[in-house]
Design a protein around this nucleic acid. Structure first.
Lengths: 165, 165
DNA sequence: GCACAGATCTTGAGCGCTCAAACATTTCGG
DNA sequence: CCGAAATGTTTGAGCGCTCAAGATCTGTGC
C-alpha cells in the first residue's frame, strides 16, 4: 500500500481525533436539539439564517449557500418547515422562477425557545473544553478549510456549486 | 433573548467557521469516496477498523464504539456491507449473544483500492491548507472535545453509551 | 435451578439526504 | 422574435440513520 502521499503519525492522530470528536460533538448537539425542539440541527440553521436576514426572508438559493446545503436538500427542508408552520414560501418579485422563504412568527418563537439550550450545548460540549487561544485556533483552521473549498467548485469532473456573483 | 451564557464574537465566528468548513470538508470527502469507491465515509471507517484489528475481525459492539456509531447503525451498515460481499458475520465463540464482523478478502481489496484516493482527499482538502502547528492544534482541540464526552454518558436523562471497561 | 436485570445484537418504521430528472423562467445568439 | 443554453427550484426514488421494540443470551441472587 504505497500511496503517493500517506498521512504521517501526527496527521493520522489529528484526523482521527477530529473525526471522532467532531462526530461525537455533532451527534450530541443533534440529539439534544431533537429532544428539546423537535428538529435536527440542519433545520435550526435554516431558521437562524432566515432570522438574521432583513425581513426574516431570503432567496432559496442564497439560503442554501449559507447553510452549505444543496438546493434539493433545502427544498425538502423548507417543505418540512412549511408543514410545521415555521416557514412560508413566497414568490420572488424580481425573478419569477425564484422562491423566497420567510420565517413565520411562530417559527421565530420556536427558534427563540430553542436557541438558549442549543447555545448552552455548544458551550458545554465545545467551548468550555477549550482555552481562549484554542477558540481562535479553531476559527483559523476552519476558515482555512472552508474558504478555498467554497471558491474552487470541483477539481475532478463536474461543478455543482455555482459561483453566482 | 437573554440566554444565561451567550456566545461572544470570537466564539460565534469560530463556531460558524467550524460548522461551515467542517460540513464542506465532510461533504466533499463523502462525495469523492462515493464516486470512487461507491460507499459513504461511514462504511469506509468500518472497513478500516476491521482491517486494523488482529484477524481483520472485531466484535460488533467494539467496532461500534470505535466508529462512534450506535449499535443499530452498525448493524444496518454491516448488513449492507455483507450484501456487497465485503464483510461477513460470524458467531462469537466466547459469548453466544455476540457477533463478530470479519473483513473478507474482497473487502480488503476494495479498501486498498479506495484508500489512496481518500487519503489524497483528506490531504488536499485539509492538511495542505494547514501549517504543521495547526495540525497539532487540531488534534489537541478535538482530543479535548472527544475525550470527556466519551467518558460522561449523558448528563440530562438517559445513558445509551455503555462504559464496558 | 429459576426468575430477573442487564448486555448484545437485530428489526422495522419514519425521516432526512443525495442523486438524477423534470419543470419553469431568464438569458443569450442569431 | 425564436430556439438553445443557463439558472432557480421542485420532485421522486433510493439509501443511511435514529428511535423504539424485540429476540437472545449472560450473570446474579435466592
Amino acid at each position: 500500500m504505497d500511496s503517493p502521499r500517506w498521512l504521517d503519525d501526527e496527521e493520522q492522530r489529528a484526523w482521527r481525533a477530529f473525526l471522532f470528536g467532531g462526530r461525537q460533538l455533532m451527534n450530541r448537539l443533534d440529539r439534544e436539539l431533537q429532544a428539546s425542539a423537535g428538529m435536527p440541527v440542519a433545520y435550526y440553521e435554516v431558521l437562524v439564517g432566515l432570522s438574521e436576514s432583513p425581513g426574516r426572508a431570503m432567496r432559496m438559493s442564497e439560503l442554501a449557500r449559507r447553510a452549505e446545503s444543496s438546493p434539493s436538500r433545502l427544498s425538502h427542508a423548507v417543505a418540512r418547515l412549511e408543514e410545521l408552520g415555521w416557514v412560508r414560501r413566497e414568490a420572488c418579485p424580481t425573478d419569477r422562477r425564484g422562491a423566497v422563504a420567510v420565517l413565520t412568527d411562530e417559527g421565530f418563537r420556536v427558534l427563540e425557545a430553542a436557541a438558549a439550550g442549543h447555545v448552552e450545548g455548544i458551550r458545554s460540549h465545545l467551548f468550555d473544553r477549550l482555552s481562549r487561544e484554542q477558540v481562535a485556533q479553531l476559527r483559523e483552521i476552519f476558515e482555512a478549510v472552508g474558504r478555498p473549498l467554497s471558491d474552487e467548485p470541483d477539481p475532478p469532473c463536474d461543478e455543482d456549486q455555482s459561483c453566482p456573483g
